[in-house]
Amino acid sequence: MKNLKYTYLLILAVLVTMSCSDDFVDVKPLNENSEDYFNSEAEYQEALIGAYDLLQSTYLNVMLGEIASDNTKAGGESANDVPGIQQIDDMIHTPSNAQLRDIWGWMFAGVSRANYILEFKDKINFDDKENVLAQARFLRAYYYFELVKWFGDVPLVVDKRILFGEQFDVDRTPKALVYAQMEIDLLSAIDNLPAVQTETGRVTKGAAQALLGKVYLYQDKFIEAASVLGTLIETGPYDLVTDYDTLFENDNENNIESVFEVQYIDTEGAGFGCLQCSEGNVAVGFNGVRNYSVHFLNPVLVLISQHKKFMMLLKQMI
């Protein structure tokens, strides 16, 4: 009896001394917390690929820009196919336009991913870091340039992601200030990017100079534009291709004339549910011949005949 009592006491004592901590309620998510990322060069490089990813969605910027012009008609399976595209062709679009909303959302997704890297720019050091950060700065400037061209004044947030809840407090920034930020980013990128990258498709010093030149041009800063574009022509490793006929052929991608080129691949497409997820160029699927594609972006006859004339002239000149 007495023994039993001691046994109970012993068990009690063990229980008391082993009183547990709160660790078991502090379960970690299966995926890495984004606040605890950027612990190695590899993680910076991977996040940078994520920031490049949205470049592929700019097929829509090119396509809609052309449709807005008188070079092309909207096309599609009928005059009602994708109302947002048809309305831009007819210049009767309203603020509720699914395609404009896509451009807005995709370019801001690019901004957000570039900002994510720059938010953690001081976390660790490694040899290639300045190159990585310069690429991120170029990408942020690229996406913001698109946003300003399409929407004018846009919310400008730098070196941090906008967290949920903060979106109501972010106002539109006058586009002059957004341009100023692009200039800062691109000047820094020019200083830190190599003239040639080891991998085709990564942005280079020349790409940053070319983009800065365009950013200047859009602000009518012609002297600055002439200066940076002049430097690019004189010092960049670029030249014109000898045969213009082959310039836009598949085999001539990333040729000596190409300063910056968005990279696509034909092995992985996407569904309508996530066109921005495609690694292939969605424009190819959208803008080709009917029954092979969705048949948007039909060139007008005048454009075709002018192009023929231009090619004839070019041949005579050579």
Partner: peptide
């Protein structure tokens, strides 16, 4: 909590590269 489970995929050197 924001986690690293998005899709970050691009193309370098004509090959798909997978990021985060």
């Amino acid at each position: 909590v924001s986690t690293i489970n998005g899709e970050g995929v691009y193309v370098f050197d004509d090959e798909i590269v997978v990021g985060s």
